[in-house]
Design a protein around this nucleic acid. Sequence first.
DNA 1: TACATCTGGTTGACGTGTGAACCAATCCGC
DNA 2: GCGGATTGGTTCACACGTCAACCAGATGTA
Lengths: 161, 161
Amino acid sequence: MTEPRWLDEPEQRAWRSLMTMQDGLSEFLDRQLRTRCGLSDADYQVLAHLSEAPEGRLRPFELGGLLRWEKSRLSQHLGRMENRDLVTRERCLTDQRGAVVVIAPRGRDLIEVAAPQHVADVRSALIDHLTPAELRTLTTIGDKVRKRLAELEREQLDREQ
Amino acid sequence: MTEPRWLDEPEQRAWRSLMTMQDGLSEFLDRQLRTRCGLSDADYQVLAHLSEAPEGRLRPFELGGLLRWEKSRLSQHLGRMENRDLVTRERCLTDQRGAVVVIAPRGRDLIEVAAPQHVADVRSALIDHLTPAELRTLTTIGDKVRKRLAELEREQLDREQ
DNA sequence: TACATCTGGTTGACGTGTGAACCAATCCGC
DNA sequence: GCGGATTGGTTCACACGTCAACCAGATGTA
């Protein structure tokens, strides 16, 4: 605590580089989706998961698990998507308190137009400019960080008890 | 356009890995700052830039340039930060329409507490787990993407004319 | 069966980001 | 100098995310 251990030059550069890339990439992809298909990144992810699910239907809690979204966020977002005819909500037959989200025809159409364009954007902004080695390193780093964050989260939970 | 060129296995994994890391990292860092210092990531960045500026003062448009924020966002956020005594706003003497943002004592105190903790978090979640080679690769990738995004933005602007 | 607890989901209040409209001061070409 | 374009900034309306409170149906345990 008394010695902060600031980032040195290469560390600083890597960190800033990552942050800038992060902001730039999300901003770019979100804007492309939005201007070309009228979908936000959030809409896209919801529709992507639904379109891959059997019959295009999922329980909200399953969808929330896949997206790692808070349940209130999901509920609010589904409400807005329902108003725009992207999805519909039905009552669940086997669990009386639950619901089922179903992708609507308009949602299906939009995601089928959006998906190839989105992949093309991801390629054009990132993937196509990476060597196989860079691709591997990126995967490695991502996996390491994911594991580490899970660890930190567990520690946090332990401390709370 | 007729052939979408989907991502292959390693590409897919790298992309998802990056996205997950991105979400997880921002979420973690933001939560740490928020619970320990009552600062959002946005607050932190504003205060960080201000505290490094001469006399802790910057014109909003300079700050906006550094943060790459829309001016309306910056204006709104500064308003809220002013209400919380983190910054103050003064009229600019040399440009009658402009303002100057100054870091307030409370803002200075908070950033000085938050900064070392924030760096420690960045280390503990990311930097300390990377080899020098990974650090270099990350920097390289970030730089490539930044250049590429700038290129795409220029093309976009050209198309609009 | 009865009561406590847990789970799936919605709602409301609030903080935050975006785009467009707007105002005033400044700049620039004549 | 004058009039139009540009720049610095704020404001409004709206979309979005988070948290806490809440409700109803399910589950577990005596």
